[in-house]
Nucleic acid binder design. Structure first.
Lengths: 245, 245
DNA sequence: AATTGCCCTCTTGTATTCATAATCAGGCCA
DNA sequence: TGGCCTGATTATGAATACAAGAGGGCAATT
């Protein structure tokens, strides 16, 4: 039941996932020949895939020098969250009148999963592989919540652009260890999700919109707080790859 | 003083301009071989250029069937303007505190040019090649105004995404003939530009933001009004290429 | 006459080959 | 000693060659 498509497209998707997940670290130089043998194809479709990723802003081409996974500065990160705040609040406003009972239930289920992921993360404050894994699951659960809203909004362009802005950060996902201050931020994140649900349930597009906006901006505070703690730029042997702005 | 770059990049830029300007009409199938001989290169860089345009949403690939210039539905058009409204208002807010005297003067100069273009367009209500040309100049002058704001905001991501949303419409630029109702809409467009300048001069980020948002949304009203008049989809032998939503 | 299946051609997708720019090592000269 | 020029090496950019899917027309069959 495999949907027919070109190799270039498939490669682009795999590489995109690898970059977003952080498997391919920002700054890494991608050798075309290496990729072509990894995917068992020639360099032609590989180059086409890389062109697509370049247009998406995930990698940068330097003529005759190669392509590397894009790094991001703190300023760019801030800008990405500002964009997400606007687009996500818009999506939420558009979605509000369209939410059905079933949609609300799905959103609540996603929020429950997110809440669980948050608790698991808080219960494992020690650094290490496990916390790394839990962090990734936390991120996925968080995306799961917001994706329900995007789906209901049924606004393809907004969804595409917002997720593009989201991606610019994903590959840099490193999280802070537990602590009362960090915990409070996690708590707020969780609480704000519930507030958005409440606004949607109450049928208030304007309210949901405002809450969504604040929520994304607060998410940046959380991230900035983490980056502050790790200004040395190293955690678990993984570089943060966010350049100081 | 030619900046070194690859042929694929150059071709992509030329094709992008051709699509945005409407020279290559939406729906048109782009034959790779035809393009390759037009640019005097092989199909390889042409395909890479097309991949980039596809990622930008300007063309759509259909595996083994070819690539065609993307068409747009009325719903998609509306969505693009909603996005632009959010991003442009954000950019305006960010730019507000950064505006210098020189920047304001540049913005006023751009507005003057836009105002002139508007008057010229209104003075030539008859359809025909000339009105087509004046319309294009009007669009360019309008972009010129907004581009000053983007520059001052110095927010590359926002600028890129907003212009991307703007592009989704540009290739479809067809304008209505004169008339009291249309003239009033033009008038409002011009007036709103001046209001934004006033807010920036007064140093009100919040005010400028709100005005910019309303302005973009009103622009959609103007466009929708035009499309209403030409629901038959034909003008000067050029198709509107906006599918009915 | 309509329909179905085959074949032929056109176009795209991919591999392979060729060309050219960048890098690095080593030697030469100030 | 140190910097710079020069040739070999490597990786990328582009051209060419090859493979494969899509569509259309024609003929055979019902």
């Amino acid at each position: 039941m495999m949907l027919e498509s070109t190799k270039a497209d498939e490669i682009a998707l795999v590489l995109e996932e690898a970059i977003v997940s952080g498997e391919l670290e920002p700054g890494l130089v991608l050798r075309q020949e290496e990729l072509s043998e990894r995917f068992a194809v020639s360099r032609t479709p590989v180059r086409e895939a890389l062109r697509r990723l370049a247009a998406l802003g995930l990698v940068s081409f330097v003529p005759n020098r190669g392509v590397r996974v894009r790094t991001i500065t703190l300023d760019e990160l801030r800008e990405a969250f500002l964009v997400r705040a606007e687009l996500e609040s818009l999506a939420t406003e558009l979605a509000a009148p369209k939410f059905t009972k079933a949609d609300l239930e799905e959103l609540e289920a996603a929020e429950s999963a997110f809440s669980r992921a948050t608790q698991e993360l808080r219960a494992q404050p020690r650094e290490g592989i496990d916390r790394w894994r839990l962090t990734h699951e936390w991120v996925r659960a968080n995306h799961g919540f917001h994706d329900v809203i995007y789906r209901v909004a049924s606004a393809p362009l907004i969804e595409r652009l917002a997720k593009s802005a989201r991606r610019s950060f994903s590959g840099h996902a490193v999280w802070a260890p537990g602590g009362s201050e960090t915990d409070a931020l996690y708590e707020r994140n969780d609480f704000e999700h519930r507030a958005i649900i409440a606004a949607l349930r109450a049928g208030s597009p304007a309210g949901a919109r405002a809450l969504a906006r604040e929520h994304v901006l607060h998410s940046f505070d959380l991230l900035a707080h983490v980056l502050e703690q790790f200004s040395n730029g190293e955690q678990n042997g993984r570089r943060l790859h966010v350049e100081r702005g």
